Amino acid sequence: MTISFTYKKPQVIQALRYHFLAKREIRLMIILVNVFAFLSAALFYFKKVTPMAFLTGSLLWFILMLTFWFFLPGAVYRRASTFRDHFTMKFGEQDFSVGNERGSRSWSWQALQSFLETPNFFHLYFDSRSFFLVPKDGFSNSDEVWEMRQLLKQKVGPILSPSRREGL
């Protein structure tokens, strides 16, 4: 199977959000900040803390959400020239390859540690920090998306939901 694609910025930004928010340490930090914000709101309501403590908790929550929802994905998108290229990918029984006008590279399926499927992409993870986004828009129809999903399940393993990506 061969696909050709270019990336669309809004879809890539959303995929990067999935990537960051799927990491266990980031999820834990968001949970802790939310608990802190709710606790500071409750303590403020019962007049156990000053308004400044409540404001600090709220500001911390707001900054954290802005960082992981807008700033971090935007910064990664701007830094990576990869998202501005046109790619061709070939998927075979033994390996897969990625190419653009500057060259191509091939990997065996064993090079992939895991994969994650999101609404617009397949995230192919080489390790916890190295991954490649394969847009579903590059496939000609939903049957090819289904074939790709089956191929990834066969060659890499089951689809990892964000909560099951413990090793990443």
Score class of each variant (00 low, 15 high):
L32G: 08
F132W: 09
F91H: 00
S104G: 15
F68R: 06
H123D: 04
L39T: 15
P119V: 03
P158I: 13
M148P: 02
V98M: 03
G167R: 09
L43M: 10
F87D: 00
K9Y: 02
M89K: 06
I3W: 00
F96N: 01
T6L: 09
P158Q: 12
W107G: 03
K153R: 14
K48A: 14
V12D: 06
R24M: 12
G99N: 11
L32A: 09
K8L: 12
N100G: 01
R165V: 06
Q94L: 02
L116I: 11
S130H: 15
Y45E: 01
W69S: 13
S161K: 10
L152P: 10
L72F: 15
M29V: 11
A75I: 12
R17L: 08
G167A: 08
A111V: 07
R164T: 11
R27C: 02
K8R: 12
L16A: 04
N120E: 07
N100K: 00
F44L: 08
L21Q: 09
V134I: 14
G157T: 06
G103D: 07
Q154C: 09
A80Y: 09
L112N: 01
F126L: 12
T118S: 11
K153S: 07
R164Q: 12
F54M: 05
L133A: 04
F115Q: 02
A37H: 10
E101R: 14
P51A: 02
L21I: 03
P73Q: 06
T82S: 03
F70L: 13
E101P: 01
V98W: 03
L59D: 01
S81Q: 09
A41Y: 10
P51M: 00
P158M: 07
E147M: 09
S128F: 08
M65G: 04
R164I: 08
F122M: 06
Q11K: 11
Q11Y: 11
L21H: 14
G138A: 06
Q94S: 07
I30Y: 05
F5W: 08
V12A: 09
F121S: 03
I3C: 00
P158H: 04
S4P: 07
